[in-house]
Design a protein around this nucleic acid. Structure first.
Lengths: 200, 200, 200, 200
DNA sequence: TATGAATGAGAGTTCATTCAT
DNA sequence: AATGAATGAACTCTCATTCAT
């Protein structure tokens, strides 16, 4: 009990530091944010920062992981994917849901695109819900169950995710070339079109 | 005459600063490079830096512009585009040549992707050869001449350029998911496939 | 009984802190050792440190006393001095044994030389075996019993101890100018020579 | 001319930093002196410190060298040594003069003993007057010229210098066991006595 | 134009010490 | 008696920028 309380307090403090940092990073950028700023915003002493994080880079990495996990977890849950769906449907649902989630949070999207290294993002070193279920593994299993077969399936998926991720980004953050609501149907149509191209 | 010589000298000094900075930025990163480092490498005094650039950010913007212009100019020239080519061929040639140019210079590619804001890259605020001929305008003219018509041509082009740019990047710099030589045929095939999807 | 147990526990904890600190001080130096380091090594909490010592300086002083006492006690015991020995023999035996003890522990020697203020070392604020028997007093008594008389006996002893201590030091820790085994006969010969010089 | 002026100015500033630091180091100790303190006392900005020294340790090393060189140079000059003197006289003169110089400056003596590594002090890695004439070499040459021969001359000299250095120290700084003026004749007598012991 | 010595604000980081538990 | 999270002053060091030459 004693210890739990302690741990809880520490978790709250850690979270408070991460939240403060996230706001500052997105408002004025990583290198324009000092540890003093973060500590001040989180209402703790500067030294306290170092009880929770090695340095600013460590903090950024933790925030990025945390935020990305939230997005992927939410995307998978809201997609309502099950074993009976075709592979095409699985992919399209995932794309659609992910776009929606990102579209609902410009700031988060900008942050993730800047800080998530591409490999992590696409090949899912991230785990959903703290269990060892990498994102990409889930997609891979759906692929194995699929009746329709595809040539070069990895390249195909890479191209789809690149297109969706990259093209969504500026549509969401800057409405360039058009707002994301307008671009979304194009993206899904193109995703389907790519899969058709790779059908065997 | 005297003045011309002076101007030349100044250009040389400016260039020398830009070259030094480019090397340092790509070797150790922007924020790990100080103005003292740049000045030392360029063999000028620290104060001299401020005669040519407002600050480090100004310098980076100038380098980025300069390097991107070089790439686009070279791509356009080497593509050997003329009025008699179909729009499809024009686009595919441009894609192919641009991929080749970037593939031949990993370091430059990494630098451009990191520093070129997407809008600039795609919608060609860049001018070729110091004349007011934006890159995108040239593509636009080819589009107008085309016999084949496309629905939502701007979105189509956006998607093609996004896909090419984004998917090429990690293939060039990290050979992920496959080396660029292997990925390139896929990219061109997909570009053609997108255009087919948008044909009217 | 209860209280005794408690006192024992405290002594163990205090000792554990002193041992930890001694190792760290000799390994990485006094100013490169933090109280956190010491507490961690001694497996106690940081706050516990302050129950036993005022600060790092206090701790160092206590360690130094303790270690020096051990050396002198051992030297006296191992010298096997008794009332029938001549003063010269007493002094030479003490010198010889002390050199041997120090030579057998380079690390301790380095520590003592660095931290033992000379006065303490020579004029014996140190007590042997927790009883109030200062080291120097013992030598003094031997001097009073001596049949052979010396002029300026205090200066004579000072010079002998300085020579032995100072010259041994770098021979032990760095084998400069020669290893201590080689230097030792010279030292004893010189000690005897000094005593001859001061005989009346 | 321009540059010379500059260099002079820089030398003055460097000296001013070294003087300020020397005073602070001797007054309150090395580790209790911060770079801010030094800069303030020398009336320069904190950053200026780093134009002249790598860090505090670098500064201390430079001061130590500088002060030690001054002492050795002065000692050699004031000893008025020439080729016709016997080796014994050469050594005794050097001892006498060095004791006098150190005795005239308690603070410097304390500083040098604390910071001069013993080897350097005794075997003279220091050069006199920037020319490549190590102190010990000069003594060595006198030894070679000597008519009287000595067994183990290096050990003999080591013992003499150890005795002089070590025994003078507390006499100078703390008048322990007696003031240096009283101790000095003893020291010289003992030095002569040691040489006698080693005569062949 | 060009220099580079000087500046001083401010960054990251450490750590002795306190105190509520 | 023992803990260890929290503090915040103090530290070293960097660096963009200025300015007298």
């Amino acid at each position: 009990m004693e210890k739990e309380k302690n741990t809880l307090k520490k978790l709250i403090k850690k979270n408070s530091l991460m939240n403060a940092a996230f706001e500052l990073f997105t408002e004025r950028g990583f290198s324009n944010t000092s540890i003093a700023d973060i500590a001040e915003k989180a209402k703790v002493a500067k030294g306290t920062f170092y009880l929770y994080f090695k340095d600013k880079y460590d903090l950024r990495a933790m925030i990025t992981m945390h935020k990305a996990e939230q997005v992927f977890m939410k995307a998978w849950e809201e997609s309502g994917i099950n074993n009976k769906m075709s592979f095409e449907k699985t992919v399209l649902r995932l794309c659609s849901t992910t776009i929606d989630i990102l579209a609902s949070d410009k700031i988060l999207t900008r942050f993730l695109v800047k800080n998530l290294s591409f490999g992590m993002f696409k090949f899912g070193e991230l785990n959903i819900n703290d269990k060892a279920t990498p994102f990409y593994t889930l997609v891979d299993e759906a692929l194995k169950r699929s009746k329709v077969k595809y040539r070069d399936p990895e390249i195909m998926l890479y191209l789809i995710f690149e297109l969706i991720g990259s093209a969504s980004y500026s549509a969401i953050t800057d409405e360039v070339p058009v707002p994301i609501t307008e671009l979304k149907p194009h993206l899904l149509e193109n995703a389907r079109n790519i899969m058709k191209l790779y059908e065997e």
